[in-house]
Design a protein around this nucleic acid. Structure first.
Length: 601
DNA sequence: ATAGGGTTAG
């Protein structure tokens, strides 16, 4: 690359072309640099600068560096920078930003460190840029050091610097840190508000995100833009709040942002997570040129509904439209195959993802496949696969946790023991491992082992939060704790739910495999609400085991079933009376999924 | 030369 650059420079240097006289004045050269968007014309201007002797002019070289960076020639920019006798703050900041644009935040932080050893003082542009580098790699330690420097140098009142600090703390999972900076800001704009909303939304505090959004609208400082709306829709999705999500959708339509790809993706995801896959589909089909992300949202949404075939069709369609899938798309596809029992299709996709699409399967893909094999009872293959994968401790916890659940589902004590060992050894999900293993022993009738494990847990002080599931309707949150069957008329509900499960099995419900359904719903009818309640109640009773991520699919032909209707009615009454939680703020730590249901003791 | 948004396995 360097050689070709030199060649171009030389050929331009010695060519005798008729150039307008203005070409040689500094102002003109710089204007040409700012308008330049092709590498070949850049080298020509570069050689003119060289000829005119402006290479010793910091301002001119800074413009040259920026032009190289704009054309993603970071290495050339670096060579120029290294040759500068007196790089100034702009030279440093430009190159630092260049490394960030090339996806090298570490290098940009290294250069910043070097800059601190010189007499060049960073300014607000430099700070905003390096803070972004910390956000990208979630480096809170460095972020805090830079924050201290910001205060020392006196930029703590700068709008852009503070907005990037809010974002940095949020991305590093320090929500309180983000809020502290946010509260100290003298003036805020849409960006600062959005950064704070995102900090909440991405740290399982969706309620706070929505609260801030309401505050923003109440103050009516500005109209929400597409960035803010996408973030708010994301918060609604994580909470499963259909009503708020629809309000946000209304705002999107009114403000004309509905054709925005990012906003549309957020809507597709939100409707799917709120249980309205048909709405997701409607929004999705209105996107004129969907990119890989809305396609992936739709694939994942369908997969979670047990519509595995639909996911695969969407995948085929996007390939036909020459949209390149990414690693997340394959997570969705493998998830779809896993949850719809399409094992052969899943294995084919795993095997072809690299040679057909150039995506190397990593731990998350293998975890999906372990889950897929495990669900259908192919535990030995799943175990074999899990053993063959190199993983870091976090990914390992997911991998072995997945295998452990599958072992329990099929009563394979031997593999459950091995998977639990791995979890306990790695000091990850220890309580989960104990509980699941004990449940597996119990399932296999090995009561003594189950009991011993419980005693061991008590002795070593390992405890597990009870599983919890919730549904929000209007402004109320209904919480169900797993295994809590001690409510009034509990046995009555239990027998009705058993009957319901029997009917579900008649309709093809397979334990641990396909999400199935209670009732067909057009709009937000009473039936839907009751249907959702009964799903969660059933979970609470431990009666049906629906692995997290499977959403109950809604089936038309159950609508007329009178028995079901009676169940819903009864459950509805009980739920209204016994399950209203008034202080929703207490449950923030659960809010990373609207239908989470953990294992319980 | 600077800040903010969407999809991820259990």
């Amino acid at each position: 690359m360097e050689k070709s650059l030199t060649r171009n420079l030389l050929s331009n240097l010695f060519s005798r072309q008729n150039k307008p006289s203005c070409f040689h004045t500094k102002a003109c050269l710089i204007q040409q640099l700012q308008e330049c968007n092709r590498f070949i014309s850049l080298t020509s201007v570069h050689s003119e600068i060289l000829k005119s002797g402006f290479l010793s002019d910091t301002f001119a070289v800074n413009n040259l560096i920026n032009c190289y960076i704009r054309l993603q020639k970071t290495l050339d920019a670096r060579h120029l920078f290294d040759e500068m006798p007196q790089p100034n703050v702009v030279s440093y900041t430009s190159l630092i930003a260049g490394y960030i644009n090339m996806g090298q935040p570490q290098t940009s932080l290294w250069l910043f460190q070097k800059m601190l050893g010189t007499s060049v003082i960073p300014n607000e542009f430099t700070f905003a840029t390096v803070i972004k580098a910390c956000s990208m790699i979630a480096d809170l330690v460095t972020g805090k050091k830079i924050h201290a420097l910001v205060e020392a140098v006196g930029f703590q009142c700068n709008l852009v610097v503070c907005s990037s600090l809010v974002d940095m703390y949020g991305k590093c999972n320090d929500v309180d840190g983000a809020r502290r900076v946010y509260d100290l800001m003298g003036c805020k704009n849409v960006v600062s508000w959005t950064s704070m909303i995102v900090a909440y939304a991405q740290n399982a505090q969706g309620h706070e995100a929505l609260k801030l959004f309401r505050e923003f609208n109440y103050l009516l400082k500005d109209r929400p833009n597409q960035f803010m709306l996408a973030s708010v829709i994301n918060a609604c999705a994580s909470l499963g709040r259909l009503v708020s999500g629809k309000v946000a959708h209304g705002a999107v339509i009114r403000s004309g942002h509905d054709s925005n790809d990012v906003v549309a993706s957020a809507l597709v995801d939100m409707y799917a997570k709120c249980g309205c896959i048909s709405y997701s589909d409607k929004v999705f089909r209105r996107i004129s040129n969907p990119s890989v992300i809305p396609y992936t949202s739709m694939i994942v949404g369908a997969a979670k509904y047990g519509l595995g075939r639909f996911s695969l069709e969407l995948f085929k369609e996007m390939i036909e439209r020459r949209i390149e899938p990414n690693d997340v798309t394959f997570v969705g596809i493998l998830h779809a195959c896993s949850h719809s029992g399409l094992v052969n299709e899943g294995l084919e996709h795993l095997n072809s993802m690299y040679w057909k699409y150039g995506i190397v399967p990593d731990a998350k893909h293998h975890t999906c496949v372990v889950d897929m094999l495990g669900r259908t009872g192919r535990l030995d293959e799943a175990y074999h696969l899990a053993k063959s994968i190199q993983v870091d401790p976090n990914a390992g916890a997911l991998l072995w946790g997945t295998l452990l659940s599958a072992s329990r589902l099929h009563g394979r004590v031997d593999i459950a023991v091995e998977a639990s060992k791995k979890l306990i050894e790695s000091n990850q999900q220890v309580a989960n491992a104990y509980v699941t293993l004990s449940n597996t022993y119990a399932l296999a009738g090995e009561w003594e082992s189950a009991h011993n494990l419980r005693s061991e847990m008590k002795r070593s002080g390992v405890s597990k939060e009870p599983g919890c599931s919730w549904i929000e309707i209007k402004d109320k949150t209904y919480m169900f704790y797993a295994g809590n069957a001690s409510l009034e008329r509990g046995s009555e509900v239990l027998s009705l739910l058993r009957e319901l499960e029997r009917k579900m099995k008649e309709k093809g419900y397979v334990r641990g495999q396909t999400g199935l359904a209670f009732i067909e719903v057009e709009e937000e009818t009473e039936e839907q609400i009751v249907g959702l309640h009964s799903e969660r109640l059933a979970l609470a009773f431990g009666l049906i085991s629906i692995p997290k991520g499977i959403t109950i699919r809604i089936m038309k032909n159950l609508r007329m079933c009178k028995d079901c209707h009676d169940v819903f009615k009864l459950i509805s009454e009980i739920v209204e009376r016994d399950f209203v939680v008034r202080d929703i703020n207490r449950f923030h730590h659960f809010s990373n999924g609207s239908c989470s249901c953990r294992d319980f003791w």
